[in-house]
Design a protein around this nucleic acid. Structure first.
Lengths: 364, 364
DNA sequence: CTGAAAGCGCTAACAA
DNA sequence: TTGTTAGCGCTTTCAG
């Protein structure tokens, strides 16, 4: 079969040989230019680039991957839910991945079950990726997959992947501690906690931070409530809490749950923040406009993605060498109006935040 | 260079030849089985599958793509914002894409500018995709890229891509009409509209639906307000609207904006829904738990993704043949408590919805 | 129903 | 600084 290139017949897609011919160099040289390799004279480089442009040449990634053994893409296993947190994290990941010269492949899992994760990782591996990001997997069970690429666990200890696994997080424990401290600083005797599903590492880390903050001040540690991240589950928990007049402050492990919880409290006649203070977790900006505006703690998704990918890409590109050290993630408390000093107390170190609309931020 | 496979030395990754050897067949037969091609005896098929499993064989997608010219992956150009709508759509897309045997590649654009889109499409093409999904691009400008694969425009007329472009939407005009009708049915004389940025097709379609509904009943058409999807912009618009005592009903082009708008209204002493009714757009479930619970219209993301991908995949796999006809998308009105009959009217055809928490749904 | 040979378009190693 | 020679691992002809 003869293939007519460049004229007549079907206007077939140009390959590197066509570029080489037009630029008057070898295919290897074209390859060098396209990969930004050194040892190419400026003149040749320019000619190649011009030729490529003239032909509308686009590199064939499959061929490149096959020949080089590297796909230049990274796979992400994400939670298939459309929550603000999940979505923000994925957007942050995409930005950093693309900025690093990799392409992103995404696979969602229904709810992070080990089998799901294993399946997701497997499909990523089959598609061909140089590295994998697993974000926020759950605790239980064991993920059994044979991975031969580095894996980054975002917000969780390595669940599999042996030697080439790295970890990074959003600093959930610190954030949770800051939230709890905020309430304590306001003068509350103790702080209740509505956690996310405890099978999630994210939920556990926050519980941990809450416990630590309480313990550090020698406060009584109330029983834990567990929700499922949804506003509906927050509502249910709120009904329970409303019945207990001891409750004056609640740290909720997610903004949506906090909204549900506040709704139940209000419905039961417990006013927020007058009777009960509530602080959320995530930082969805829309909740600056509900009544009362929600005090919350913002998750540093961008910073976490940047940190994590630095590690992952290092592990991919320079295996064996020391991994770069992690920098500190920002802890950003967004104080709005759902938190205030307890009713019968004047202990608040700060003036009670009671403005009704925008948000004051403070670095903790 | 001799390569030791299967034992000794480095435990190299198995290839199809290893599977073939173990199963006692040719490589081509292995390929047949893996691709579910016909004309393979059940016995051989079983043997191949067993051999593959025993070896832990994983097909090399780069090689497959290079040889076959098909990558079996689809690229999505998404809006790089973490809003509920955007995120839901992407999750829906991922589900359908994966369910169809394709892998998903994602590229975000900052805000849908033509140049961004062109760049995103280009990078997708370079990575190798069999089809592209562009979701919710904006109106202005022209996208100039040479695409040689089918393109699906979700919620917008084809912006480029010539002959192999297909379109599908969420039925934004119908949804907007239903929202407007709901308010009219309640007895309001007319309905104001806070739109999204008019450079977005999504925003325009909703304006269109609102206009049509108003015109159909010969109602006066108030001036249009324009926001940017954010709650903050809704708040600003709400301040304006609060000053106008004629306003009794507002259809807002997004839930977040609706929340901001309600906040401004309430702040100005106009009660919702007592003085002003507000209906949102999207269907984020968390807003069932704010005060007042937000009436809204749910976008059929799953159905839209399913419809659109049916078209796209058809165009990829059976070019030339007739495209399957589109089925109707559901219009789902979620009536909660932010809408009610106007104060001085008893025209509401239905009992005024004033329950305070969950959501009643109705098919319109 | 199964197999043998010939590439897909690129990069790696080596040479010049 | 550049070119030559071999493949990467699979699918595609085309024969059996």
């Amino acid at each position: 079969m003869t293939r007519v290139v460049g004229r007549g017949g079907s206007p077939s897609v140009p390959r590197s040989a066509d570029v080489a011919r037009l630029a008057g160099v070898s295919r290897k040289t074209v390859s060098r230019v396209l990969n930004n390799e050194p040892y190419v004279s400026a003149d040749v480089r320019r000619r190649v680039i011009e030729a490529a442009e003239e032909l509308g040449y686009r590199l064939n990634n499959a061929a490149r991957a096959l020949a080089s053994g590297r796909t230049r893409s990274i796979g992400a296993v994400a939670l298939g839910t459309a929550g603000y947190g999940t979505a923000s994290l994925l957007v942050a990941i995409e930005k950093v991945v693309r900025g690093s010269g990799y392409a992103l492949r995404v696979v969602n899992t229904l709810d992070g079950e080990p089998d799901d994760i294993a399946g997701a990782v497997d499909s990523l591996l089959e598609q061909g990726v140089d590295g994998i990001i697993v974000s926020e997997p759950i605790v239980e069970g064991e993920v059994s997959v044979r991975v031969d690429v580095p894996v980054l666990f975002l917000g969780a200890p390595p669940a599999f992947g042996g030697s080439r696994a790295v970890t990074a997080g959003v600093g959930a424990d610190l954030l949770a501690g800051a939230a709890t401290d905020h309430l304590l600083d306001l003068g509350h005797q103790t702080v209740h906690h509505l956690a996310g599903p405890l099978r999630w590492y994210a939920a556990r880390d926050r519980v941990e931070g809450w416990r630590t903050a309480l313990t550090a001040r020698g406060r009584h540690q109330p029983p834990l409530l567990e929700g499922d991240w949804s506003a509906a589950s927050g509502y249910l928990a709120g009904r329970e809490l409303a019945a207990d007049s001891e409750v004056t402050a609640v740290f909720v492990s997610g903004d949506d749950m906090a909204i549900g919880l506040i709704h139940a409290l209000t419905e039961a006649g417990r006013r927020v923040p007058h009777d009960v203070s509530v602080i959320g977790f995530d930082g969805n900006p829309v909740f600056a406009y509900v009544t009362p505006p929600l005090t919350t703690v913002r998750q540093p998704f961008d910073a976490a993605a940047r940190e994590g990918l630095k590690l992952l890409i290092h592990t991919i590109e320079e295996p064996g060498t020391e991994v770069p050290s992690a920098s500190d993630l920002p802890v950003e408390l967004v104080v709005r109006a759902s938190t205030a000093p307890p009713r019968s107390s004047s202990a608040g170190q700060r003036t009670s935040p009671s403005r009704s609309h925008p948000s004051q931020r403070s670095q903790a």
